[in-house]
């Protein structure tokens, strides 16, 4: 190697010997296999730990009895499970209709206008917002004025997290519907909104449902915003609008960090297994649904 540049010369052979380059290539290949092994291995490790430790706690009583303070017999997580379902469903009820409308506006009316671009940008930024911030926001906006923690406030926090996700997936799905379909609808004499609601939305239905399901799966395991809003209670979620509401993620946090007892840890693992299964199940359903639509 004399004074020639280290990159390829303008013409001629590469300067580094072939075996060196091949060795480098193999090294990188090996590294990439290693990287994937680490990633997938870690996932399997985590899942195995949850299944192994969680299944110890799991049982019919665990799923049907409400949670109780340490030491009382027959403790379970049924109230937290019900609370999580309530909070998540209510969040979906709050977020989905306006988010669908917003997505429709972006795809059908706003298109590439300046306002639409700005809003799209806002939605993308909001998707990456730390969920703990949303918790703070809802705390100030709802919990303080209402004077109490409530499951409803938790729902609103989750709804804020869902909103941009559903909005953007709806828009993407609607944008995939070919324009010819819109034009044929209009040519039949339908108004714009009937074309949108009855033809375009129907064509994109599966994709939209997938988006909603994925967003539900994403928020159902969220913990940070619920710490500030729904909190936790060892009781059935009877006071959804006016009192702390039990939910699984906060129950796990409580049991894992604030309790020194082995029994509580075991219950925490059981709850973690239940929430992981729920989230993964919703995810799988969503993906299968989307696959069918593509096929």
């Amino acid at each position: 190697m004399k004074q020639r540049p280290s990159s390829l010369p303008a013409h001629g052979m590469p300067l580094r010997p072939l075996w060196g380059r091949k060795l480098q290539d193999w090294a990188v290949q090996g590294f990439s296999v290693l990287a994937l092994t680490v990633a997938v291995g870690a996932m399997l490790w985590i899942l195995c730990t949850i299944v192994a430790r969680g299944s110890e706690a799991l049982g019919w009583g665990f799923l049907t009895n409400p949670s109780k303070p340490y030491g009382l017999p027959d403790a379970g997580i049924a109230n937290a499970l019900l609370g999580t379902l309530l909070v998540t469903l209510c969040a979906a009820l709050i977020a989905v209709p306006p988010a669908l409308c917003a997505g429709i506006w972006l795809a059908e009316f706003g298109k590439r206008s300046r306002l639409a671009d700005t809003l799209r940008f806002c939605a993308n930024v909001m998707m990456g917002m730390p969920s703990v911030i949303v918790g703070l926001f809802v705390y100030m906006a709802l919990v303080v004025p209402m004077g109490c923690f409530s499951g409803f406030a938790g729902s609103v926090a989750l709804a804020i997290l869902m909103f941009p996700v559903v909005m953007r997936t709806t828009e993407d799905m609607l944008a995939m519907v070919p324009d010819t379909l819109r034009e044929s609808g209009l040519a039949l004499g339908l108004t714009r909104c009937r074309v949108t609601l009855q033809i375009i939305c129907r064509a994109a239905r599966n994709g939209m449902v997938t988006g909603v399901l994925l967003s539900v799966a994403r928020v159902s395991g969220e913990t940070a915003p619920l710490l500030f809003t729904a909190l936790f209670a060892d009781a059935w979620p009877t006071r959804f609008f006016s009192g702390p509401t039990a939910n699984v993620p906060v129950l796990i946090t409580e049991y894992a960090t604030n309790s020194p007892f082995e029994a509580m840890h075991r219950a925490g693992w059981g709850a973690a297994l239940v929430i992981a299964l729920l989230v993964l199940a919703v995810n799988l359903v969503a993906r299968i649904l989307f696959r069918e639509r593509k096929a």
Partner: peptide, 13 residues
């Protein structure tokens, strides 16, 4: 799927 696992489970693990 790895991306879908709730963060609390990572924390607990």
């Amino acid at each position: 799927l790895l991306a879908a696992i709730p963060s609390i489970i990572y924390g607990m693990w």
